[in-house]
């Protein structure tokens, strides 16, 4: 008898990773906080007027990268309903859409910031927190668990505590913090990820922004599935934020929400926030299978992505 090649599989033993559809670039047209809203619609119109030329320019540059095909560019807009909820979707969304239209901008997707913390029972922020792999200081050999300041993340070694008395009884002198990957001199960054009051955790703005970037880059999975899928808009917008889906697809003809790269057009006042976001994202370990999946997908259409995920994110501060 010839030998028989048997194959046996068990579904629970195999890893399945859903794949996301991808645009070439996801452009964030703006990020609306209560103070912007309170400043009136003119502030919003001005923001869109500043953003419009950059959108045209990014679209044109992607069109050059994929000659003969259509550049897939999707736009999104984030509303803060987490830190200080304000107004209602029914009142706010039409106003935002009108202001964008005045600058010939189409908002493809609208997202709620609180969905970066939790949405549909999936705690996205926890998911990302669990995937932080701390940037190790030199002489970290694994013999001890990583030194952590609960709720904080840095890019180096913190200063020893001033005034702490060592075993020999000598007070420790101040020493500077050191960036792990410094070039000559340190730029030490220490980011607060969350705080807790009365047993309730509040995620920091940079942490939620890091989750937001990962969502737009299509790099998050929960139990192998995509954690958030955009939901097509209904005719009328609801009267409270909780009734609005996490990500609403406003434009039926839009290219996919997630994209190989992202661009955020922001006011320079967000610069420190984005430095914190990059500090966090440099320490997020994205699933190796997901990384491979996205790389294979982009290469199949001739797009070569940057290996490091922070290099897939770009900004215009204007």
């Amino acid at each position: 008898m010839t030998s028989v090649n048997a194959t046996f599989g068990e579904v629970a033993a195999e890893r399945r990773i859903a794949s996301a559809p991808f645009s070439h670039v996801s452009i964030e047209l703006g990020h609306l906080y209560m103070e912007d809203f309170e400043a009136g619609p003119e502030r919003l119109r001005e923001q869109f007027r500043r953003v419009a030329p950059w959108v045209r320019s990014v679209r044109a540059s992607w069109q050059d990268r994929v000659p003969g095909r259509r550049a897939r560019v999707s736009t999104c807009f984030l509303i803060d309903d987490y830190f200080s909820p304000f107004s209602t979707p029914a009142e706010l969304v039409p106003m935002v859409l009108d202001a964008a239209a005045e600058s010939d901008l189409t908002i493809d997707y609208l997202a709620r910031e609180s969905s970066c913390a939790e949405s549909d029972g999936v705690e996205l922020a926890r998911l990302v927190e669990d995937r932080l792999v701390d940037d190790p200081a030199p002489e970290t050999n694994g013999s001890r668990p990583p030194v952590k300041e609960t709720g904080w993340l840095s890019n180096g070694a913190r200063s020893p505590q001033v005034g702490a008395v060592q075993a020999m009884g000598k007070a420790q002198r101040w020493a500077p913090p050191v960036q792990n990957a410094k070039r000559g001199h340190s730029i030490f960054v220490d980011v607060e990820l969350w705080d807790e009051a009365a047993g309730r955790r509040t995620w920091s703005c940079p942490f939620l922004a890091a989750v937001w970037q990962l969502l737009r880059l299509g790099l998050l999975r929960s139990e192998g599935r995509l954690p958030l899928r955009p939901v097509p808009r209904e005719d009328a917008f609801p009267g409270d934020w909780d009734s609005l889906p996490a990500v609403v697809q406003l434009n039926p003809a839009a290219t996919p929400f997630s994209a190989y790269t992202t661009l955020s057009v922001l006011s320079p006042r967000f610069l420190p926030v984005e430095l914190a976001v990059r500090t966090i994202l440099s320490q997020v370990a994205v699933d190796a299978d997901v990384l491979r999946q996205v790389a294979a997908r982009s290469e199949s259409e001739g797009v070569r992505l940057e290996e490091e995920l922070v290099d897939r994110i770009s900004y215009v501060f204007t």
Binding site: E10, L127, E129, D130, V133, D134, D135, E139, P146, E223
Partner: peptide, 25 residues
């Protein structure tokens, strides 16, 4: 969080945690 524990039953029960990373220098 958000990662399934893989389990196989044949020929012997075996369950394995998701992979995690530790940074070293």
């Amino acid at each position: 969080a958000g990662e399934t524990v893989r389990v196989s039953r044949r020929p012997i029960a075996y369950a394995v945690s998701p992979d995690r990373l530790t940074g070293v220098d």
